[in-house]
Simulated assay, not measured.
Amino acid sequence: MAGIATLFDPARVRALNDAFRRSLTGGQVVVTAGVAALPETTRAAVLAAVRSFDAFTPDNDPLGEHDFGEVEADGARVFWKIDAYDRDLREHSPDSADLAVTTKVLTIMLAEEY
């Protein structure tokens, strides 16, 4: 168990996730068909809301990783989620705090698409 604990660095994961979400760089951003179909101004408002989200609570962020949120923009209710995959995007990252072995993927979807 000690080996697993050393791989989990929630403060580092949180910092990486926040930096990625705020800048939309350093990983891959995926929007669902529903988000892509929104009017351009609504899509822009959704992206701005995701980037500025900071309403993390123990209920929506129990591990303190800042990897999920729910926003509303121009009447669109949206979920966003950050996942950490290995560099080949085949399975989960062996250490989501280490960008040398991790590719972050931010998925933005309409709540009704979940």
Rank of each mutant, 00 (worst) to 15 (best):
V29A: 08
T102W: 01
D59E: 14
E40T: 09
S93V: 14
A49L: 05
R12C: 09
D18G: 04
R87L: 15
L106I: 06
L89K: 10
F56A: 07
G27Y: 01
T103Y: 04
P58I: 00
D74A: 15
L106A: 04
V105L: 10
P10K: 10
T107Q: 11
Y114G: 04
T102I: 08
I4T: 13
Y85D: 05
H66R: 14
D86K: 01
R43W: 02
F20H: 07
Q28G: 08
V29I: 07
D59R: 10
A36Q: 15
A48M: 06
P62N: 11
A2M: 11
Y114I: 06
V46P: 03
Q28K: 15
D59H: 08
I82S: 01
V71I: 14
A11D: 15
A48S: 10
K104M: 15
S52C: 11
A45V: 05
V31N: 04
L63A: 10
R77P: 02
P39R: 03
A48F: 05
L89F: 08
A111H: 12
I82Y: 00
A33I: 07
F68C: 02
L24A: 09
A5L: 14
I4F: 13
A19D: 14
E65P: 00
T25E: 13
F53N: 00
T107V: 12
F68E: 03
K81G: 08
T25Y: 08
V29N: 01
M109R: 12
V30Q: 07
P39Y: 00
A15V: 12
A84R: 00
I4C: 12
A55P: 03
V78C: 05
D88M: 09
G64Q: 02
L24K: 05
E40C: 02
G26D: 12
D88Q: 13
Q28V: 15
E91D: 09
A49H: 04
A33M: 02
E72D: 07
I4Y: 14
T57N: 07
H66N: 14
R87Q: 14
K104G: 07
V71R: 00
E112A: 06
T41N: 10
I4A: 14
L38N: 04
D83P: 01
E91H: 11
R51V: 08
D18V: 11
A45F: 07
R22C: 03
A73E: 00
M109W: 06
A15R: 15
A55G: 13
V50M: 03
R90W: 11
G26K: 12
T42I: 13
F53Y: 15
S93Q: 13
E72L: 04
S52L: 13
G27F: 01
L7E: 08
A44T: 12
D95H: 05
T57L: 09
G34I: 07
M109E: 11
R77T: 06
